[in-house]
């Protein structure tokens, strides 16, 4: 077997700047795309729940489109195909202290758009899980739709939403590797660059796999902490499912 332990340890423990930059970019893109996805997903979920077809149908179309096409195709389409078709070209943006390259913008937007569709379904399910009586109680107290959503429904929906959102972010971390095809130098492309110079493919891909494993494991710990935090004020799951009321209904009072 051709495996050089020295190179393996060197890249794992003393990563070069190229690697660290890739790691940083992976994290930045994941977080930005996730934030965008959450915002889009929330808006889409609220529109989808509306009875107005003008709000509902665009969202259905969006979800259908995003879930029906491969993410890799969406990324290439947004960055390369639109530019090739002369429709839209992502230009570098000079933000003063640094320049945000066009392909990173495209990467964040493509991943965020895709995430938003999945998020819309998750948030919609979370909102749907909130008891109808909560709306009636809020309305009878004179709350408007915005207030009852923000203060009553979403905090309760959030508890249901946190675990799937955590999973979505886990997927997002790994999906960032796809944006290497439009030349965003995240972890995978950084690895490819190093391998093309050193030809140590086995060692370096093992290192990149371990890096991702590390990222997703760290996220897993954070997710567990988040879930504990958001369930603190909730009764334990068993009593929520079979609370006093439910038991009484089962017994027929």
């Amino acid at each position: 077997m051709d495996f050089n332990w020295d190179i393996f340890w060197q890249y794992l423990l003393q990563p070069s700047d190229v690697y660290l930059y890739g790691l940083w970019l992976t994290c930045v893109i994941s977080v930005s795309a996730m934030v965008l996805g959450c915002a889009l997903g929330l808006a889409a979920a609220l529109m989808r729940l509306s009875t107005n077809p003008l709000l509902q149908y665009p969202v259905r179309f969006y979800v259908w489109l995003m879930r029906g096409t491969p993410l890799l195709v969406q990324i290439v389409f947004l960055y390369t195909a639109l530019a090739a078709g002369g429709i839209f070209r992502f230009e570098d943006i000079d933000l003063g202290w640094f320049i945000l390259p066009g392909n990173i913008q495209a990467a964040i937007i493509a991943l965020g758009l895709n995430e938003g569709a999945y998020m819309a379904e998750i948030i919609r399910a979370g909102i749907g899980a909130v008891d109808k009586g909560q709306y009636e109680a809020s309305r009878s107290l004179g709350m408007t739709f915005g207030k009852l959503m923000r203060r009553i429904v979403l905090p309760q929906a959030f508890r249901v939403i946190v675990p799937p959102i955590g999973n979505e972010f886990n997927v997002m971390l790994k999906n960032t590797t796809l944006v290497s095809v439009i030349g965003v130098q995240e972890l995978l492309l950084s690895t490819q660059m190093v391998t093309s110079a050193t030809f140590r493919v086995f060692e370096l891909y093992l290192v990149v796999a371990i890096y991702f494993l590390l990222l997703t494991t760290l996220w897993g710990f954070f997710q567990r902490w988040l879930e504990v935090r958001f369930s603190q004020s909730a009764p334990p799951a068993s009593s929520r499912m079979f609370g006093r009321q439910a038991m009484k209904l089962l017994r027929g009072r």
Binding site: D131, G133, Q134, E136, A137, R139, S140, L141, G142, M143, K147, R151, I152, P155, Q156, R159, S233, A234, P235, Q245
Partner: peptide
């Protein structure tokens, strides 16, 4: 609706708030 209080068969208290928070919610927010 502010002028009419309503009490429901199934209480419909806000489960993520304490008794006190349930009561102050609408006066503060509305």
């Amino acid at each position: 609706r502010r002028d009419i209080g309503m009490v429901f068969q199934r209480f419909n208290l806000f489960p993520h708030m304490t008794a006190l928070e349930n009561i102050i919610e609408a006066p503060i927010q509305v």
